[in-house]
Structures are given as structure tokens and as C-alpha cells.
Simulated assay, not measured.
Amino acid sequence: MNQIQQWLQEYPLIQSIIKYLVVIAFILLCLQFIRKFLKQKISNTSVRYKSQKGIEILGYFTIAAITILYFTGSIKDFTITLGLLSAGLALTLQELILSIAGSVYIFVVKVYEPGDRIEINGIKGDVIDVDSIYTTMMEIGQWVDSDNYTGRIVKLSNAFVFKGPVYNYSQDFPFIWDEFNLPIRYGSDIELAKSIIINAAKNILADYTKASKNQWESVVKKYYIEDAILDPTLATTLTDNWVKFNLRYIVDYKKRRHTKHLLNDSIRKEIEATNGKVVLASETIELIKTPEIQIDIKNKNT
């Protein structure tokens, strides 16, 4: 033991580094203990997650401040050292610094948070974690139809919040507008077809419409935006082959595919129950005139 103490006295730099590492290890252990304590005591998932992230960010700042003060040796050199350190890091670690700045921006401005469905840098998914460098998403879309999970977990640099638009499907207004077209054959009872589609939409979408109206009022008060029609609307267009019915409606952003299925299935059953008064159209080809074909056969002696 005496030999170790003597050796450390001969090399004060090593002694200083060991003391520094002990202090940092103690801080990390404290952070780990606090995170486990919060995990056990806080039952609400959202509050627990935000508390743990807050402790993590506080720990990073504490370690950075201790590191600068420890190696400068004086508080008066803190500003100068911080400036020189920032200039050096800005040149060598631009992407990393931008990612950390992006995490602070996401947290302060609340661009998105875990549980939100977003699209950023061409990638769409549900946010499942936001740390100091990366945003982690459960991907949707790609080779899978509609808004279904692909099973891939995507890690995206937080720096992308400064490089392009961020589409948020759920912030402030967790509803989206959707639509689909129905072709109705000419000669069908058009008024009956309208009533079938509108009634199906009102019955299936009643809860979404009511909830969205309450949410939309707060959006109009918060942002400079005009009021919008939240009830299902139906528009008709005359085409060469059929009457096109376009149904536009509002739906929960996570239930778009299932809601469209319910609407289509209900409308199909009601149309079949009309016994031919309303008929769904399909693309057909009508031959106006059959072309004349002349065949000239000459017998040749061989």
C-alpha cells in the first residue's frame, strides 16, 4: 500500500486522473440509483419516462461542468476554457453536437415526444424513445400497406429536426382526414346511393366526429387557422364510365385502415340489399363496330 501511495505521489497527473474517474463513477452510480428509484416509485409511464430523461440530461451537464472545473483548476478560467473547447468540438464533432442540440430543441419546443406518430427524413413511424443523440421509431408503411408496423426499429439522428420538415400525426390534433372513391353504375338510384354512403359514415364515424370537434376548437384557438368541416362529406363526379362518389371523413390517426374496412363493408352490404337499385360499377369496354376482315385465298398449282 505504501508503495502505491509513493508511486502516486511521484506521478501527480495519474493521481489526479484517478480521483477524477472516481468522482465520475460516483456520479454515474448515483444517476443509476435515481433512475431505478424512479422506475419503481412512479407508475405513470409518461411521467416515469420524462423523469428518467431529465435525470439523464442533468447528469450529463453535471459531468461536463465538473470535468471543465477539475482540469482548469479555477472558476475564473471556466468561460475561456468552455469557449476554446466549444470551438474545437464544433469543428470535429459537428454532427454529434447538432444531434445533442436537436435533442434539447425537441424537449424544449416539444416537436414530438414518445407515443407520437411522425414522419421525418422520409421515414414514418411511432416514436418509442428520444435520447440525447437519437430518436427511435417503430417503422410503419414501406412494403406494408396502410399504416401498419413493418417490425423494423429505426434510429434517426436528432440533427434531422434542423434539416427538414417534421410531420406530426398526433400532436394537438390526433385525427387525420381520409377518403376513398366508390364507382356507381349509371342507371342506379343515385339519391339512394348517397343516403347509403352518408348514413354508413355517420353511424361508424360518430364518435370520431364528436371527439375531433372538441379537439379542433383548441387547435383553432392556438394557431392561425380557419375552421374546417369535420362531418363526413360526399362529392360526386360524372365520368365516362360511372358516377364517382368521393367520401371524405375524419378518423383517429391509428385506426385509419380498420375504419376504412368498416365503411367499405357496411356500404357493400347496404348496396347488395337494394336488389339492383344501386349497382357498383366496374371498368368495361364497349365495341361500337366489329371491323370487317377480308381474306383472299388463291389456289396455286404446285
Rank of each mutant, 00 (worst) to 15 (best):
M1W: 09
Q3W: 12
L8M: 07
Q9I: 07
I14G: 04
Q15F: 01
I18K: 06
L21I: 12
V22T: 12
V23F: 05
I24G: 01
L31K: 04
R35N: 12
F37C: 05
F37W: 13
Q40I: 13
N44P: 03
T45C: 06
E56T: 14
F61S: 08
T62D: 05
T67E: 01
G73W: 05
S74P: 00
K76D: 08
K76E: 09
T81L: 01
L82E: 04
S86R: 06
S86K: 10
S86E: 06
A87Q: 05
G88V: 06
L89Y: 08
L91T: 04
L98W: 01
S99V: 05
S99P: 02
I100R: 03
A101I: 13
G102S: 01
S103A: 12
F107G: 03
V108I: 15
K110L: 05
V111I: 15
D116G: 02
D116Q: 06
I118P: 00
E119M: 05
E119W: 00
I120R: 01
I120H: 00
N121Q: 06
K124F: 03
V127D: 01
I128S: 06
S132R: 10
S132N: 13
I133Y: 10
I133M: 05
Y134S: 03
T136K: 02
M138C: 08
I140T: 14
G141Y: 07
W143V: 13
V144I: 15
D147R: 12
N148C: 08
G151S: 09
I153Y: 06
V154I: 15
K155T: 08
S157K: 10
V161Y: 03
V161Q: 02
G164A: 07
P165K: 15
V166T: 14
Y167H: 13
Y169H: 12
Y169Q: 09
D172T: 12
F173Y: 15
I176Y: 06
I176H: 02
W177M: 13
W177Y: 15
F180V: 04
N181S: 12
Y186D: 02
K194E: 08
K194T: 05
S195Q: 15
I196S: 01
I196P: 00
I198W: 05
I204K: 00
I204R: 02
D207H: 09
E217P: 00
V219C: 00
V220C: 00
K221Y: 09
P232W: 06
A235H: 12
T236E: 11
L238P: 03
L238W: 03
T239G: 04
W242P: 03
W242L: 05
V243F: 11
L247P: 00
Y249N: 03
D252A: 10
H258Y: 13
N264K: 15
D265Y: 14
I267Q: 00
R268G: 07
K269G: 03
E270D: 14
E272G: 06
G276T: 14
V279K: 14
V279Y: 00
A281T: 10
E283Q: 12
E283M: 13
E286N: 11
K289D: 07
E292Y: 12
K298T: 14
